[in-house]
């Protein structure tokens, strides 16, 4: 590791060998009254420029916490990062000073949130909130920033942007609000965009439009996109690769078509089987039995074993490592071969 305090723009050769963003063995824990909650336990993933990674998992699986750790917007304390690195263009941003981090946050790594109504400030106009990026980070005048805001609103296809730039968030529909959130996030052409459940609060038809917009913006600007979701349905068309998280760990990572074709972890398989399908109409919908584990009191061995339909004796005792299946694929299941072959009973 080189000295992390100064260099946010490493030389070109280093950029070539390192992916745009590398999360390496990241651990995040929260101090609570009941004890230490280990929300993220050794998560690693990479995102290249122009690539989209979908991070999939139930609530509490640590997917959002990982994203907030990348952004540096966790409240510390109670949160703590005891181990791990987040390397952005080769620099571990976790080691940077708050000031240096402020230069990356929002400008080079940006984030959009689930509920755009609560994520936008109710007392300022949307133009003010988008324009703020230019006024604060680029020192633009109020008028220029406002013009930029109109341009961005056009770019995310908000109709009559010029007339609506001085409206307040509550005067927009849910889908339009999320577009404003996106406009704000892409304002300074970030290299990485993290979208934390961007469509969860929206109607199904609007969901598709927002996903299309994100995909299109990514193609135009070659951003790395991290798409956090619990909805397998929305990622298929947009994502290049998927990381499935469970109880703070990645249990499977794979290229998107590989995982859809043949999951290598019982949990991913459960998620896929629980998507409603037209050809299964009339049959009972599959659901993974049980509940996600209590992070304060994790089961020994494989965290998924109490819910796993294929649980074997050693699943209770041995924590499975992330077995490498191929260059692009890994599974944290002792019996991934059987899961892949469909021979597991």
């Amino acid at each position: 590791m080189k000295n992390p305090s100064i260099d946010t723009h490493p030389p070109a050769d280093e950029v070539a060998q390192e992916p745009l963003l590398v999360v390496d063995n990241l651990h995040v824990e929260f101090a609570t009254r009941q004890g230490v909650v280990r929300a993220v336990n050794g998560v690693s993933y990479t995102v290249n420029a122009g690539e989209s990674l979908a991070v999939l998992g139930e609530s509490g699986s640590g997917k959002s916490v990982t994203a907030q750790a990348i952004m540096g917007i966790l409240d510390m304390p109670p949160a703590r990062i005891p181990k791990g690195e987040v390397r952005f263009r080769g620099t571990d941003v976790l080691q940077l000073s708050e000031q240096a981090r402020g230069q990356i946050r929002g400008q080079r790594i940006a984030m959009i949130f689930q509920d755009a109504l609560s994520a936008l400030n109710p007392v300022f106009t949307v133009g003010w909130q988008i324009g703020e990026m230019f006024r604060v980070h680029r020192g633009m005048s109020r008028r220029d920033a406002n013009n930029k805001a109109v341009e961005l609103m056009d770019r995310v296809r908000i109709p009559a942007a010029r007339q609506r730039v001085n409206d307040y968030p509550h005067q927009f529909s849910g889908g339009m609000r999320q577009r404003i959130m996106i406009a704000m996030a892409i304002a300074l052409d970030p290299e990485v965009l993290i979208a934390d459940e961007p469509t969860t609060a929206l109607d199904v038809t609007v969901q598709a439009q927002i996903m299309d917009l994100l995909a299109e913006l990514q193609r135009e600007s070659n951003m790395g996109l991290i798409l956090i979701t619990h909805d397998l349905g929305v990622v298929a068309d947009v994502a290049d690769k998927i990381a499935v998280m469970y109880a703070g760990r990645i249990v499977e990572h794979a290229l998107v078509h590989d995982i859809y074709k043949n999951p290598a972890h019982p949990y991913s398989k459960g998620l896929l089987d629980s998507i409603p399908r037209v050809d299964m109409k009339g049959q009972e919908l599959y659901a993974i039995k049980g509940l996600p584990p209590n992070l304060l009191n994790m089961p020994p061995g494989c965290a998924f074993h109490p819910r796993c339909p294929y649980g074997r004796p050693n699943c209770v005792t041995d924590v499975p490592p992330l077995y490498e299946i191929s260059g692009t694929r890994g599974s944290a299941c002792h019996y991934y071969r059987e899961v892949l072959d469909g021979t597991v009973q």
């Binding site: 917007i73 946050r105 940006a110 949130f113 400030n121 703020e132 704000m184």
Partner: peptide, 8 residues
Amino acid sequence: RTAVAKGM
């Protein structure tokens, strides 16, 4: 949180 994430 959004304002923090915007790098303000």
